[in-house]
Design a protein around this nucleic acid. Structure first.
Lengths: 338, 338
DNA sequence: CCTGGCACTCAACGCGGGTGAGTGCCAGCC
DNA sequence: GGCTGGCACTCACCCGCGTTGAGTGCCAGG
């Protein structure tokens, strides 16, 4: 086990390195932090920390930089979450309050998060499977052509075209619409399948085909749209990364364009509470020198989606975590209100 | 006026510079292109071209690179549009054919365009004002709360909540729904205002307030949503820009995040036909070393929105223009079909 | 008007010594 | 045993310098 002071040294190294982006040496450390010991002692501690794999030297006779393992220890044991100041909170709330619809909420959230953390922000649209149905609408566009519109409690709208196997009368349509809504409105999407299971039985034989088609389209929509959408922003912040651009920034931009990758990234995070994935802890190759801070958010007590930021492993973890948590909280509030 | 050969020299310079990214000298030019004259002659031509402002030297005793004015001449007079090959066309069509809804069409288009041109692609969602109404739906969510759903011929769906001044019966609702649709379905959004103008008069006094509210919300939606959405992709291609990254790439990424800027960019382009804006021709500061190739696309003969690519002024104009034109054409087809 | 020849310019490259931050180790002290 | 000051060593970084070579402008001759 590492002594108290050694942990303190690690904390100091992380702090300085995050600030300066340069390897930090023993002398500079003792000058900037009053550790109460001499550089020589710090050197010994550093040797021990290096031995354990928490820090490393880019090359012999240079200062030390934290390793992924070092950051991990820092995040888990040494750093708290830095709360937002009151004016910051107020600014967040004001900014988000102006949103007019779901797209706008997500858009504002992304911009806000990117600006607060000065990193790349990722916000997932509220998930359908965890949402509840507000309303299902069926429109007749042509004798044998329907449109299914699905409205969620988070304000999201999905629509699908349906080609009916047989013409479907207005009365049947109204009937189906009413029955559908009385069964599923207010229920969670995940519960819909079993709620509508026996619905065709209530209809005349000639209509059953169409009803079944409608239901299967509905269920299909639920499944399909589980592959969720997301919005990213603040990519310009990547340019503050380092100086060896092409190699650092390229793979990150590529990864960010792959929604699949991002969704997996957010998906891997724990459902509740904040998750920090550091460097190589991210499965994706291109993100091996970035960290992802993510958290769930939702209109109720339960998370309906996640949001987070992607930045260099060398980031201000306490500050970033504070911003992410605060934004998630307020977005949840906004969604609950609307 | 410049002689035929001098134009040929300019074309050669543009061609080589686009390929190599390095200033091109007289000797190299004569070696790679059989111009039939000696380097010395080419030097004289170059001096003339420089005099006129079509090319410039980064520093004394270096080769020449085209200026914005040079590219302009090249695009206007010297370069054609390079058509896509048949297999390429087929690939485009196959890729776009798999789309399931509007979001998917736009998403696929962006990815396709980014991949084909190896640059940043921008696709605007079909505009509401130029679209036609497919269907208007009114749902009653609560006694005095309605939802308005607007479906366009391009598959776009917009919804709005409406708080009614007075309770609105189901019969009135059905009546309003029917009247609304019979008037506006199939008509262009721009024509909607005058089509619904006298609608309240057909209703009982007690319902007129609600009808008016619905109509004003409808008209509002048309106006609001004129500020159109767009999707961008292929930002990773920016890393192929140059080697002096931070300065080149940063402002571009920033500009791309500002939807306003992009919309203005596309908006400035002519409505029909392809538009190429080179370097400083773009009003926006950060885009002064990029060119924008854009074109309108639409389901009919008329453009409903625009798409294009943003790349370095040093780009393959004929190829890019060919790809942009081809993609626009096929997207138009897809939209017309759905 | 084109061409070969010639002197000139200057960014890019490679080399080499100097500088300084940082390290590891060790003997001595508390 | 742990902390400290001292010391020799390492090595990336910087700076200046000469070399190289692609490229230029100009000019006299075809």
């Amino acid at each position: 086990m590492l002594s108290e002071r050694r942990l303190e040294v690690l904390r100091a190294i992380v702090h300085d390195y995050v600030g300066t982006e340069e390897p930090v040496g023993s002398k500079a450390l003792t000058e900037r932090h009053s550790l109460g010991v001499s550089p020589a002692t710090v050197r010994n501690d550093m040797a021990a920390l290096e031995e354990e794999g928490f820090i490393a030297q880019p090359h012999t006779s240079a200062g030390r930089i934290p390793t992924d393992k070092g950051y991990r220890l820092f995040v888990d044991k040494l750093a708290g979450v830095k709360p937002m100041t009151t004016p910051e909170r107020r600014a967040i709330q004001n900014f988000l309050d102006g949103a007019v619809d779901l797209d706008d909420v997500v858009g504002r959230t992304v911009r806000l998060l990117a600006q607060l953390t000065r990193q790349v922000a990722v916000v997932q649209y509220p998930s359908l499977t965890r949402s509840t149905v507000r309303h299902v609408e069926l429109l007749s566009l042509a004798p044998a052509r329907l449109m299914l519109v699905l409205i969620t409690d988070t304000g999201r709208v999905e629509q699908r075209m349906i080609d009916c196997p047989a013409p479907f009368g207005e009365t049947s349509l109204a009937d189906l619409r009413a029955r559908l809504n009385s069964r599923v409105a207010g229920h969670r999407f995940a519960d819909v399948p079993q709620l509508v299971q026996d619905l065709p039985e209530a209809f005349e034989t000639e209509d059953r085909g169409t009803v079944a088609t409608v239901l299967s389209t509905l269920l299909e929509t639920l499944v399909e749209e589980t592959e969720e959408r997301l919005m990213i922003g603040g990519t310009a912040n990547l340019t503050r990364f380092g100086h060896d651009f092409p190699l650092t920034i390229r793979p990150v931009l590529e990864a960010l364009e792959e929604q699949v990758v991002l969704l997996k990234l957010l998906g891997e995070a724990t459902d509740s509470g904040m998750t920090v994935r550091i460097g190589h802890e991210n499965a994706h190759e291109g993100l091996s020198s970035t960290s992802v801070v993510s958290v769930g958010y939702g209109s109720g007590s339960e998370a309906v989606a996640k949001l987070g930021v992607v930045g260099p492993t060398r980031m201000d973890y306490p500050g970033t975590m504070g911003a992410v948590r605060a934004v998630a909280r307020y977005v949840g509030q906004i969604l609950a209100e609307s």
